[in-house]
């Protein structure tokens, strides 16, 4: 994935856990998980403040400027 200032026509830019990430236009939430090495990991995904169930990740097409949170479980009280 190349890095340049503005997304080209075939690219979109989304925010993943607050950081910018470019990916090919038409990519799904599952494609993004694969791109960041988290496919199959115990994570939950929220797009624009709405949880996307795991079974639906492959159908959820991302759009430019989408805001994603990818979370997991950690120790806590």
């Amino acid at each position: 994935m190349t890095e340049h200032d503005a997304p080209s026509n075939d690219e979109i830019m989304v925010f993943v856990n607050g950081a910018e990430k470019r990916l090919p236009a038409g990519g799904t939430a599952h494609d993004l998980l694969t791109a960041v090495g988290l496919a199959g990991r115990p994570v939950a995904v929220e797009v624009n403040e709405v949880v996307v169930p795991r079974a639906a990740l492959g159908e959820r097409i991302l759009e430019d400027q989408d805001r994603l949170e990818i979370v997991t479980l950690v120790g806590g009280g």
Binding site: V16, N17, G18, A19, V36, G37, L38, R41, P42, V43, A44, E69, I70, V71, T72, L73, V74, G75, G76, G77
Partner: peptide
Amino acid sequence: VTVAVRRERLLNAAGENIL
């Protein structure tokens, strides 16, 4: 046992998970 929900650290996917 209680657990918390936090952002997955994208740069350290090889790290241990509490699970």
